[in-house]
């Protein structure tokens, strides 16, 4: 097993008066795609937002490459090489595609070679480079959100339900893109779509009611129908 780039140790998070994460412990190995599966309200998004510092862990530790980031402000976590693609994509609709990307580029300057690779992954980004982002389709907005996350080399990318509401053809394109992106970085993917997750994930953790209830390889989960029945029926609708 490779060394963990990210480690969550007994993380508890409250949102207002609700105790949402009840001691999440999780190791994310360096490189590849790692999936956090769970039904709606299980704590997937809360886990990602807690890692990113957008919601604070009340108890426990979050460690990125041996550095405790539990109490770090969100901008500092981002500057350590962590990118976040939220469920709502978080694109700036009033800005052009170029401006959205430029915000994430170091010093506002693009690495041309990297940009060409992004255009190869998502040709729509080049086509709509000067278009306002609010005019893009849902799939194109998701592509923009992911392009923005990889405009610089990141150590870890947190992606929250990227397939939500997307057409099957777009999802297939996303699978290819994620495989390419995972060659140079680590992706922690939150998903409900088991087919999408199975196509990409190396490891999987299943979260339910704010606790990790299963962890292992994706291959083992995909091959074991009993495990799937136990966890998928518990925690998600398998598409």
């Amino acid at each position: 097993m490779r060394e963990a780039i990210l480690r969550l140790d007994d993380v508890h998070t409250d949102i207002a008066q609700y105790h949402v994460l009840h001691g999440v412990s999780l190791d994310v190995p360096e490189g590849g795609v790692h999936v956090l599966l769970g039904r709606n309200g299980a704590g997937k998004t809360t886990s990602l937002r807690t890692i990113m510092g957008l919601w604070r862990a009340r108890k426990g530790a979050i460690v990125l490459r041996h550095r405790d980031i539990t109490a770090l402000p969100t901008p500092d976590i981002a500057r350590l090489g962590v990118a976040f693609v939220p469920e709502n994509m978080g694109i700036f609709g009033g800005l052009t595609v170029e401006e959205n990307m430029r915000l994430a580029a170091e010093g506002g300057r693009f690495d041309d070679e990297r940009l060409q690779r992004i255009f190869a992954l998502f040709p729509a980004m080049e086509k709509f480079w000067q278009s306002q982002a609010h005019a893009l389709s849902g799939g194109q907005k998701q592509m923009l959100a992911i392009s923005r996350a990889i405009v610089e080399k990141r150590d870890l990318i947190l992606i929250d339900e990227p397939t939500k509401g997307l057409a099957p053809a777009i999802i297939r394109a996303m699978i290819d893109a994620f495989r390419e992106i995972a060659k140079e970085t680590t992706i922690l993917l939150v998903e409900q779509n088991f087919h999408f997750a199975r196509a990409l994930g190396e490891t999987v953790a299943v979260i339910d009611d704010g606790r990790i209830v299963h962890r292992g390889t994706m291959a083992a989960l995909a091959a074991d129908e009993a495990l799937q029945n136990q966890f998928l029926s518990l925690s998600m609708e398998a598409h």
């Binding site: 981002a78 700036f92 915000l103 994430a104």
Partner: peptide
């Protein structure tokens, strides 16, 4: 301009 739209995302960048 980005902050007017989504402050949280500006921080996440």
């Amino acid at each position: 301009r980005a902050g007017v739209e989504n402050r949280e995302m500006v921080e996440a960048l």
